[in-house]
Design a binder for these strands. Structure first.
Lengths: 202, 202
DNA sequence: GTCGGGCTCTACCAATTGGTAGGGGAGACG
DNA sequence: CGTCTCCCCTACCAATTGGTAGAGCCCGAC
């Protein structure tokens, strides 16, 4: 792999795990077996490197989601596929999800950039949600807000490991399957159109 | 307000907004109209200050949740109340939620501390969920995982402002009410016990 | 008055930060 | 051979980092 790509990869892991502010170019170079100046040769500044890393992460995320969108024939399959993709990432490359979290922090400088790269997928998802809503195949009022709720749930369940611990569940491969099953059940119930308004308080 | 408390408050806002690594003691002191050494007089190190801030945030969060738990007579009211509390914080003190997010980052040194402080509330919530599950009043398999899903959804919807923007919704007071209504509808549907397994794929 | 504790300050410090300037080696190509 | 480009390096920099040492000030108690 080219040095340029190695830097990008290592930076993604480090930024996604320790945060951008928590990662120094020196430390990054050390784990790469390089000097900091070699990093600055490829990327003129730390900010530029971060932007490149965000682009890389967005590209990988989009790429993984593409499989889902292509195969899926309806909304529920898309949700299921997205959960599959996100959970795969959570085990194989948690730093990638951490980086998305880092880049989408309120007030982040790269938030616009990140969301721009994923705009196509977001639009597609919103569109199929809109259709499904109109046809009464899923429950909800606003496709955008529904998509937002779905995203929050999936990403939260996939990444909030410490919260999971707080609930008394130690993260492991065995509990991961359970978590996924429970998440899918949760989402399926939330999208189920047949029961709107049938569950009143108390 | 005492200087000690002022430091704690300002640090909470700064840590919650810019992150711990993104906040220097010098900058913090500057916004306080003090020298950094005055901060270090009250808190012997930045790490100690962070721990104190985490405790403070946990206490405020717990305090706000207490109102909910006291009033609530059933699970759904607790969920509704929690959403109310979290959304109030999201508008009145977003940095507090930001700090919870910061403190619960995977691998965070203060994660144990934070979750310890909230253990009582977590246990109580899990307990009432367990009872409701047993009595068939809510849908689900595992109370802990269900609580985890609920938390992820609520916190995500309340804090992921940039994602919301990506969905095409500009955060404002007007859309906030919509977001909350849609979130409540989403959660209500997800918890609804009457429809388990009635929504198959396709 | 003066003593002492609580509080904030000035003065420093070594280490680390992101970044600049430029040297040198190795291979491609004339 | 020369030289040009690509790549990684050493050397250096000013600014900032968290943290130490200790002086001075205010104020209430004795």
């Amino acid at each position: 792999m080219s040095t340029r790509q190695r830097i990008l990869d290592t930076a993604l892991d480090s930024f996604g795990t320790d945060g951008v502010d928590g990662t120094s170019l020196d430390a990054l170079a050390r784990t790469l077996g390089l000097r900091k100046q070699s990093i600055l040769y490829y990327y003129p500044s730390k900010a530029a490197l971060f932007e490149a890393v965000v682009d890389e992460a967005a590209a990988r995320f989009a790429e993984a989601l593409d499989e889902v969108v292509i195969d899926a024939t309806d909304v529920w399959e898309q949700v299921e596929g997205t959960v599959r993709v996100v959970f795969r990432m959570a085990t194989q490359r948690p730093a990638l999800l951490g980086l998305l979290r880092e880049a989408s922090r309120p007030g982040s400088s790269v938030a616009v950039q990140l969301t721009g790269r994923l705009a196509g997928h977001i639009d597609a998802a919103r569109h199929s949600l809109e259709i499904a809503l109109k046809e009464g195949r899923v429950a909800g009022e606003d496709a955008r807000l529904l998509l937002f709720s779905l995203y929050s749930t999936i990403m939260g369940v996939a990444t909030e490991v410490e919260v999971l611990r707080a609930m008394g569940v130690e993260p492991s491969l065995r509990t991961l399957a359970q978590r996924r099953a429970e998440l899918l059940r949760f989402l399926r119930a939330a999208l189920n159109p047949s029961t709107e308004r049938s569950f009143a308080a108390s």
